[in-house]
């Protein structure tokens, strides 16, 4: 990996972390564990389309680890890792079929995968299957949040392409 790419990935991790930390300041709207916007997913979706899977994984896991350290919520780390991994695998597979102008759908699919991962860990931690009752609520919020972050990514990509042409 050349220095330029490493720098890019470092910057992207940094960006994702900042978004993540800012998002922590947004209060929970609904009292359902795990419901959030997931704005940092914008960076992940961008990486999935513009970088190789290994590089995206490095960015994603550095962000999850550092994010958990910065927020001081190490319990949430396992949910993030499980959700993040499932989301990442799902998006890497689906990106081969979904063109860039339908990025929003990739983001939704990723969000739903993330929710399934979260609930799976919650079931393991609680040693109880009853938390699956929360999955449909998470899926609805995941669809909405995924659509939002996906559209954001699409706009970012469009603008980035334009600036690249100019420079």
């Amino acid at each position: 990996m050349d220095t330029k790419k490493l720098t890019h990935l470092g910057l992207l991790t940094c960006l994702a972390l900042i978004i993540f930390i800012v998002e922590l300041r947004i209060p929970d709207i609904v009292p359902i564990p795990g419901v959030k916007l997931g704005l940092a997913n914008i960076v992940t979706v961008y990486c999935v389309y513009n970088y190789r899977p290994g590089e995206t994984a490095m960015m994603l896991y550095s962000r999850i680890l550092l994010g958990a350290l910065f927020s001081g919520n190490l319990m949430a780390l396992w949910y993030s890792i499980a959700g993040g991994t499932l989301c990442f695998i799902g998006m890497e597979i689906l990106k081969n079929f979904i063109r860039e102008d339908n990025m929003w759908f990739l983001s939704i699919a990723g969000a739903v995968c993330h929710n399934i991962g979260q609930i799976a860990v919650a079931m393991l931690v609680l040693k109880s299957t009853s938390v699956i009752a929360y999955l449909p609520f998470l899926m609805i919020s995941g669809c909405i949040a995924g659509l939002f972050t996906g559209l954001c990514t699409q706009m970012v990509c469009k603008r980035l392409k334009r600036t690249r042409k100019v420079s």
């Binding site: 564990p33 319990m75 919650a122 931690v125 609680l126 040693k127 009853s130 938390v131 009752a133 929360y134 609520f137």
Partner: peptide, 10 residues
């Protein structure tokens, strides 16, 4: 059917 869950305290 929505259980009350405290994840940190299981």
């Amino acid at each position: 059917g929505k259980p009350i869950v405290c994840l940190p305290n299981r």
